[in-house]
């Protein structure tokens, strides 16, 4: 799946790069004027483009051939047959347009991703009028979702998995909504800009945890009372204490449960620092820091993050991890 996706996104890119830059910019400006971005978009005639498909052209050619045959054989019923095909084509234009118009697209939540993986974009398709919408194709940033139908349901969720490449805030291109229903002769489509973004964390790159810097050390920093580094003494066991900390030797001696007390140092919590990761280039450094953040968070050790100009005080837990990753993403 990932291979097919990357080829298609590459194809999309090459299609775009084929246009020269000023043309592209003008095209984008025109699109922005015509279909301004929003959180909620209802498709109407201003936004929908329509053109025959290859099959549509084949169909028209058939109608034309039958028209010629009708004229030449002086056969009014064959002629009528070609008129029917023409009329059906007109109806197909209207029906295909109608199938897309009135469709309501609502931006939903997004989930951040690591660069190179897929970011989840949630959106909803809904009916703004009461009519059905069939076989709606969504294509976004190279990801094509399975065709959707809105027949019985008033609103359906759609999850789009957009491939990401670079860290940072990810604004996908316009979302392309297509349908050829009912006859496949006409393609109606639109590009809508949904006001949606998501954060892309750096791609984690494996590296060694750099040796603990000595500038902190055991001295000079206040001890943390409930640490687990150095042994302080014993106190009576409380029910909330872990059995790991019970002094089993003392128990054997006295028959009473004591809990060993330790203290930690703040300096003992790790600092992940810009200068200490081995890579030379900034992006690679960020990637390695990303790996380390994940690694540390898995280990449970409190850690801080120090980047040029940014400093996050040590901490632990998912919130802390998220904050660190966001900082890396936005750096």
């Amino acid at each position: 799946m990932s291979s097919s996706m990357s080829t298609s996104s590459r194809a999309a890119e090459s299609r775009f790069s084929a246009l020269s830059r000023p043309v592209r910019a003008r095209w984008q400006r025109w699109l922005d004027r015509r279909i301004p971005p929003g959180r909620e978009v209802v498709l109407d005639q201003r936004r929908i483009f329509i053109f025959p498909t290859l099959m549509g052209f084949g169909y028209l050619f058939t109608a034309f051939l039958l028209f010629i045959a009708g004229i030449n054989y002086d056969n009014s019923l064959i002629l009528n047959f070609s008129f029917f095909l023409g009329s059906l084509f007109v109806v197909a234009i209207l029906q295909t347009f109608s199938n897309l118009s009135g469709l309501e697209i609502t931006a939903g939540t997004t989930e951040p991703a690591f660069a190179g993986t897929e970011a989840k974009f949630n959106l909803h398709l809904g009916k703004s009028r009461r009519k059905d919408h069939c076989s709606i194709l969504l294509e976004w940033h190279g990801f094509a979702a399975e065709p959707r139908n809105l027949i019985d349901a008033e609103k359906i969720p759609v999850q789009m998995l957009l491939p990401t490449r670079n860290r940072g805030v990810f604004h996908p291109e316009r979302l392309k909504i297509t349908s050829v229903y009912p006859l496949g002769l006409i393609r109606a489509w639109t590009w809508i800009a949904l006001d949606m973004e998501c954060l892309v964390y750096p791609k984690p790159v494996v590296c060694e945890l750099p040796p603990q810097a000595q500038q902190g050390g055991k001295d000079g920093k206040a001890p943390v009372p409930e640490g687990n580094e150095d042994f302080d003494g014993l106190r009576a066991y409380q029910e909330t204490d872990s059995l790991n900390t019970v002094d089993w030797k003392a128990y054997a001696r006295s028959g009473d449960l004591y809990t060993k007390r330790f203290h930690g140092y703040q300096a003992e919590s790790r600092w992940l620092q810009w200068d200490q990761v081995p890579a030379q280039y900034a992006e690679l450094k960020l990637s390695q820091l990303c790996f380390l953040v994940l690694d540390m968070a898995r280990g449970g050790t409190p850690f801080g993050l120090q980047l040029p100009g940014v400093k996050i005080e040590p901490g632990s837990g998912p919130e802390h991890q998220k904050r660190c990753l966001e900082t890396l993403a936005r750096f």
């Binding site: 030449n72 002629l79 029917f84």
Partner: peptide
């Protein structure tokens, strides 16, 4: 539904679309 919708236009074309003689 589609076929019924195409019939009015077809009838107009049938009776009014200018007929031309055989091309060959």
């Amino acid at each position: 539904k589609l076929v019924l919708q195409s019939i009015p236009l077809m009838i107009v074309l049938f009776y009014l679309f200018p007929r031309i003689g055989p091309l060959w």
